[in-house]
Design a binder for these strands. Structure first.
Length: 483
RNA sequence: GGCCUGAUGGCGGAGCGGUUACGCAGCGGAUUGCAAAUCCGUGUAGCCCGGUUCGACUCCGGGUCAGGCCUCCA
């Protein structure tokens, strides 16, 4: 089944057809680097990382161009820098570095492009000028404002019309706006704020223009897929469309919005213990903290355990279950690796490799159905169970085991999980602990050989105190840290 | 007020007009010095009211409830 994507704008699942299969373009709104990312911020990069993996598999790694911007101009950044008394660049560099490090722990592949707003000011100024020249924006009191009345399709993405919004408006309107929903493209900076020269005076870009300008500059319009969180659909993405379309004089074109992006994908919100994350409730969970206390794959698995458009509740149960799911898969992998210790992969022939490849189909089918990651996970268990059956079958052909193991790893790679060795997963990656545990296991092996069960159990208790579970097997004991 | 989602077994969570989702947990058993892992077996669903249909968890209408956006939050 070819890839289908639920398009927010058309509100239906559509067959994905790139504009150019040799150059598939994907843009996702990235972080504003003024603080550590919270767990909700991690959902889009993980979800769209899976999409990027899928696209690369289908169109070729070098045919996909994935851009995720870094917003390094923002009032919150200015406030943070002012409060700390440091230059703005110090704040943005610090949090961008933390963001990238945390993303790496989640096994998120770096996007092909990570444009920074500060590197694209000329492109932004050019696009604003083009919008003015098209008659869709006006300068007023040092600001440049987009004139929503000049773009008839305004509201197509979020399903609103201007009349309804005016009726429901409860925000005070700036006096220089012609229409309450006109929004800022460029705004003047105070002396202590970052500023760049422009035809309208020293200032800085508004919130929405950065994305449309960087998209045009780096990917070219229209792009294939634009992604982000649902909350960005309005006003951010709505405004991006208006800017991108109008900068190209397409304000009155039929299906004008198609001149900006061909498919829109929005991930659902994340709650914490069934409540919205908010600073007033005090339940904001920082990704940076989470990845200190648990493997990144657990976080990643949890984020992928629900369909991306569904809401996801972040809670202890979800994390425990994610951990257990991964334990199960890594357990099969560990046993398979033991069975394949002396196996030479070169003995697999073409036909066998093709069979192993075909085994991925159920997983691909799920992902191609609007990125159904829970479905893909179910199929991953199918592959793991098939591998387990082979391992339990004394008669099984070792080549079949190797093929099944390959399929499982490959499928997991599409989701970006099972990237560690089973030992690294179970042993937790702490060399000091590993040395201590192995010393104790040697003593215990001696005690067991002498059938000194009380001593063996005393050692098990000591290991237990180290948060370690011992598993006695026919070839000696293996161990794992408890979840 | 406007717009938009969703409601599935003890829990998480999918697909599907008729056939086991999947995982976790539970229960019974096998195996095990103990334990873990593994294996076998097993129970539990589809918010409410109508309609369409031979047949609906799945389609349609109405209701109830929950959540989101309309405030430079992913």
């Amino acid at each position: 089944m070819p890839l289908h994507i639920h398009d927010t704008l058309r509100r239906e699942k559509r067959l994905f057809e790139p504009r150019d299969p040799n150059r598939v373009t994907l843009y996702v709104c990235g972080p504003t680097v003024y603080d550590y990312a919270h767990i909700g911020n991690a959902r889009p990069p993980v979800v769209f990382d899976v999409l990027a993996r899928l696209l690369r598999r289908q169109y070729g790694a070098d045919k996909v161009l994935y851009a995720r911007n870094v917003t390094d101009v923002d009032d919150k950044i200015n406030q943070k820098a002012a409060r700390e008394g440091v230059p703005i660049g110090e704040v943005t560099a610090r949090y961008e570095a933390a963001y990238l490090a945390d993303m790496a722990l989640l096994n998120v592949s770096p996007p092909d492009l990570a444009p920074h707003v500060t590197d694209y000011i000329p492109a932004i100024v050019d696009q604003i000028q083009a919008i003015i020249d098209a008659g869709c924006a006006y300068a007023a009191e040092g600001h440049v404002l987009f004139d929503v009345s000049a773009y008839p399709s305004y509201g197509a993405l979020s399903g609103r019309n201007l009349d309804d919004m005016i009726a429901g408006a409860r925000v005070e309107v700036a006096p220089y706006k012609k229409n309450p929903h006109d929004f800022v493209l460029w705004k003047p900076s105070k002396p202590d704020e970052p500023a760049w020269p422009s035809p309208w005076g020293e200032g800085r870009p508004g919130w929405h223009i950065e994305c449309s300008a960087m998209i045009e500059q780096t990917l070219g319009l229209p792009i294939d897929i634009h992604g982000g969180g649902v909350d960005l659909a309005f006003p951010h993405h709505e405004n991006e469309i208006a800017q991108g379309v109008c900068a190209h004089g397409c304000a009155h074109a039929e299906n004008a919005h198609d001149h900006y992006a061909r498919y829109w994908m929005h991930n659902g919100f994340l709650t914490v213990d069934a409540e919205k994350m908010s600073k007033s409730i005090g339940n904001v969970l920082l990704l940076h903290d989470l990845v200190q206390s648990m493997p990144g794959e657990v976080v990643r698995w949890a984020l992928l355990s629900a369909h991306y458009r569904q809401p996801l509740d972040w809670n202890q149960g979800l994390l425990e279950q994610s951990r257990k799911n991964l334990d199960r898969l890594y357990g099969v992998l560990r046993d398979a690796d033991a069975a394949l210790a002396d196996f030479d992969p070169a003995t697999l022939d073409e036909a066998e490799l093709e069979l192993a490849e075909n085994a991925l189909d159920p997983v691909l089918d799920a992902l191609e159905d609007d990125l159904n990651t829970p479905g893909a996970i179910a199929q991953l268990f199918g592959l793991a169970n098939a591998l387990r059956d082979l391992l339990n079958d004394g008669e099984a052909d070792i080549n079949d085991v190797a093929m099944a193991r390959w399929s499982l790893k490959e499928a997991a790679g599409l989701l970006g999980v099972l990237s560690l060795t089973p030992d690294a997963w179970f042993e937790g990656g702490d060399p000091a602990l590993k040395a201590e545990v192995e010393a104790l296991l040697e003593q215990r092996a001696a005690a067991r050989a002498a059938k000194d069960w009380p001593e063996a159990d005393r050692i098990r208790d000591r290991l237990n105190a180290l948060n370690v579970v011992v598993m006695d097997g026919p070839d000696g004991a293996t161990w794992r840290v408890k979840g």
